[in-house]
Amino acid sequence: MHWKTRSRLTGWLLGTVTIGFLLFQWAPMFTMFTLSFSGENGGTTFPMNGVSLHWYRNLWEADLFDDFKPPMLRSFLLALACSATTVVLSVCAAQAMRGRFRGNGLYFYLLLLGLMAPGILVGFGFAILTRLLGIEGAWNTTAYVVHVSWALPFGFLTMLAVFNRFDPKLEEAALTLGATRLTAFRRITWPLILPGVIGTALFGFSLSYDEYARTLFTSGSDGTLPLAVMAQLDRQLTPELYAIGTATTAMSLIVISLCAIGFWLRARALRGSPT
């Protein structure tokens, strides 16, 4: 037996483990996807009793009590705001890190802290803070602040990595050609870091949109979608929850693939074709 054959055997073994895990990882999601299309008399488990869009229609036409539309709208707006804020703050912070201001080492750990601190602690602590200050929590004020603090470290690290790969000679070239720092940033730096910025925006959006623990403590009476989902789960698990899960998952997959295609097209355009 050639030694590479034996190495291929371990490959097959590890491959089986990997494929097994991937199946295990995807199977629950596929169960949920499938069951979200079950018939009107279908329940939260098999059999499906037919195939229909009944549960999606239910979602759309829901009455006041289990209406997921307002929380979904709130989640969406909150995620947009969080995404925009995260982009601005992390680009500024990463650009500042390049300036190596005094205390930048400590600053790095300060921003990383948000990554390590579990949501349940941050949420609870922030709830205490607002209570002591006498502020009423709301999804678009307190929850917004906490959501940004969650997405910011991810955005910051992404932008740091982007700036690390960035060749400062390009900026130097622009500066020697007579551009001011601001112009050089706007005309040279910004277009080059744009893919990273888009990545940061995506992070900001999806981290906020999916966040549960931090929101639970800080959103006040009007909750976001994950809170509504959890509340419904507490009352009763219904196929509508599957429909929501399927819809949001599909949404994020579509957004991710659109961005991936965008990056790919950009990379191809940059490589350029001779024609």
């Binding site: 169960t31 949920m32 488990t45 989902v229 698990l237 994020s252 991710i256």
Partner: peptide, 15 residues
């Protein structure tokens, strides 16, 4: 990239 909450819920009909 998808919601942890949703993924956790998906385990209910799976298990």
């Amino acid at each position: 990239w998808t919601s942890t909450l949703i993924r956790a819920i998906a385990f209910v009909p799976f298990l």
